[in-house]
């Protein structure tokens, strides 16, 4: 369990995120939301980044991360976490930022330089519910354990595996 201290005038709502509790503190500085703090309480020793890959298939949370990434993040950050001409690779970001930092950026957004802006997703329930999963999927991608494209989920379609040419591809 860790927490960062908030030096802000306003404390945001407490949200449940992927089984973890996240306290968001949104600070208003000038007319912009700025990153102030994000505190994450781990409820047990089960690290959210502890993904499972088995025979090329992934656990449900990692799959949910793929899906959330593809629905929401891909439009700027490019396919499969690889980055684009518009926004950086989240695979690379996940290697240099802690989960707490990652969640805080997604929640608060940021302006890196004039004209380079990441929006705040604090009000987007779907994104906030899946931010841990997105991080988990990115960790798996960065480690090379999950390849490009839509991964299969462990346990899904095992009975028809022989007839499914895609499902047994290993990384």
């Amino acid at each position: 369990m860790f927490a960062t201290k908030a030096n802000t005038t306003e404390v945001g709502p407490i949200r449940q995120i992927g089984g973890k509790w996240l306290m968001l503190s949104l600070g208003i500085m000038g007319s912009m939301l700025t990153l102030m703090s994000a505190a994450i309480a781990e409820d047990d020793g089960n690290d959210v980044t502890n993904y499972t890959v088995k025979d090329g298939k992934v656990d449900q949370a990692t799959y949910d991360g793929y899906e959330a990434y593809t629905r929401v993040c891909q439009a700027c950050h490019g396919p499969d976490g690889l980055g684009s001409s518009f926004a950086p690779s989240l695979m690379e970001i996940s290697e240099t930022r802690t989960l707490g930092e990652f969640v805080a950026t997604v929640a608060n957004g940021q302006e890196i330089q004039p004209g380079k802006v990441m929006p705040s997703f604090a009000d987007d329930q779907y994104v906030m519910n899946n931010v841990n999963n997105i991080y988990r999927y990115m960790k798996a991608r960065a480690a090379g354990d999950v390849g490009r494209g839509r991964p299969d989920v462990i346990g899904d379609g095992d009975d028809k595996e022989a007839s499914d040419s895609d499902s047994d591809q290993a990384e």
């Binding site: 090329g56 439009a75 700027c76 490019g78 396919p79 499969d80 690889l82 980055g83 684009s84 001409s85 518009f86 926004a87 690779s89 999950v146 390849g147 490009r148 494209g149 839509r150 991964p151 299969d152 040419s165 895609d166 499902s167 591809q169 290993a170 990384e171």
Partner: peptide
């Protein structure tokens, strides 16, 4: 945005 990282080869299969 779409092409910076390259596209997957559809013949290569998943991953």
């Amino acid at each position: 945005i779409g092409l910076a990282a390259g596209l997957e080869d559809p013949e290569e299969g998943l991953g």
